[in-house]
Design a protein around this nucleic acid. Sequence first.
DNA 1: GTTTCCACTTGATCTCTGTCAAAGTCGCTA
DNA 2: TAGCGACTTTGACAGAGATCAAGTGGAAAC
Lengths: 247, 247
Amino acid sequence: MTVKAQFDHTNCEGCPIRHRAVCAHCDTDELEELEGIKYYRSFEAGQTIIWSGDQMSFVGSVVSGIASLTQTMEDGRTQMVGLLLPSDFVGRPGRETAPYDVQATTDVVMCCFRKKPFEDLMNSTPHIAHRLLQMTLDELDAAREWMLVLGRKTAREKIASLLSIIARRDASVSQKAQSGPIVFDLPLTREAMADYLGLTLETVSRQISALKRDSVILLEGKRHVTIPDMARLMDEAGDDSDGGFLV
Amino acid sequence: MTVKAQFDHTNCEGCPIRHRAVCAHCDTDELEELEGIKYYRSFEAGQTIIWSGDQMSFVGSVVSGIASLTQTMEDGRTQMVGLLLPSDFVGRPGRETAPYDVQATTDVVMCCFRKKPFEDLMNSTPHIAHRLLQMTLDELDAAREWMLVLGRKTAREKIASLLSIIARRDASVSQKAQSGPIVFDLPLTREAMADYLGLTLETVSRQISALKRDSVILLEGKRHVTIPDMARLMDEAGDDSDGGFLV
DNA sequence: GTTTCCACTTGATCTCTGTCAAAGTCGCTA
DNA sequence: TAGCGACTTTGACAGAGATCAAGTGGAAAC
């Protein structure tokens, strides 16, 4: 099996289940079918992976790095509408054109599938369709959770919400216990955070400074964050439940 | 066929394709299987159809009226995260509990399916799963479109965006031509509009008055709206594309 | 007919966040 | 080591929208 040789299983350490379901080298059942329709692509930070309105020629998963979905108005106001972390899926089976820009926020490696063969595979393999439905429902929940953040939360609550999402996501990927301080590096610039939160970068900076002053977070440099008390942060975020929303 | 007799096709005039795909009396292929798992329920305006966190015992479509998906914070701030118009689907196959409240905004009639049998049907009928995936992708697009509204638009643009969505939705349901003035009744109170837009009801009222003063809309009474020039309204909404987003 | 109630409007004021501007930090290159 | 440039912080001020508070209008109830 050339595919197996080319994309060895070791490429995919820690590959989570969301990825596994649609990724050739993690789902050995599908290796035969996927031969030749799968390939890797790399993108540099800042590069646009897909332009809004473009024909989409592939679907795929983020293997490493962070990509974002953004919408831009004529006058330049932009809103990030989704954050794609490793294992997240990109693409709309059944759709011709992309509804928003996909941008590489950091350097990104994607595991791509040519769209048409992937769709054929999906049509003939019910469990892929089901998996995709579950993933889409997860994304829909995350989008709606985020609507509450955008529509009703204060700047401070917005920042706390974003930090707790990143922290939780980070913690779950690295399988750490949830107790004790959480440490991570912010993968986003202040501007990217602002675009995600519907704020300006100045407000983001001010609120991060305020959270630091109030010891809700500790900062080393500009990006290295320690959260001494996750419950405190969640409280600042105004989350009623401890509920796991997923981005 | 008792189902056919009970829920005659005439119940479903104008039943759009999104409903048809999952509704017994519109999709004759499935009549046999759906016998006994389908039923109608009525809700009064203001009633909560499903509480966030509840076990979901059914899925279904809105037949008439308007329902909304809302999230509420501990202190009472609420954000509407989805508007369900006739033909829209409610429910998450594969999920146990509801992620947000579903409320009847007006009197609502729903066409419900018991959840477990519906899931079985979905698992054995690929085209239902595919249809559901398409519908979920549509909702996801709409949610993300709305994130731009919530995060980056001014109060005036928000109102214009909401009016143009309702107008377009109304126009497409009633199959009217898109040219010429569009007339409809607002199905939402000012407060519901505020909850959808992330504003206060006072701001909603002020902006509606302003749009009226500027002749972007005409108002008869408090709810009856005429839009003399749809392009003008879309311009006020700040929409770059004339793109059809779907709620 | 008039009372009551509810949805809505309008006004005055306040405050949070945006805007504009300047200065600080850090890493990289020459 | 200095200097450049990208990113970030901080300050002063302004403005959009929130808050608080009356007041209006129309339909249902008495």
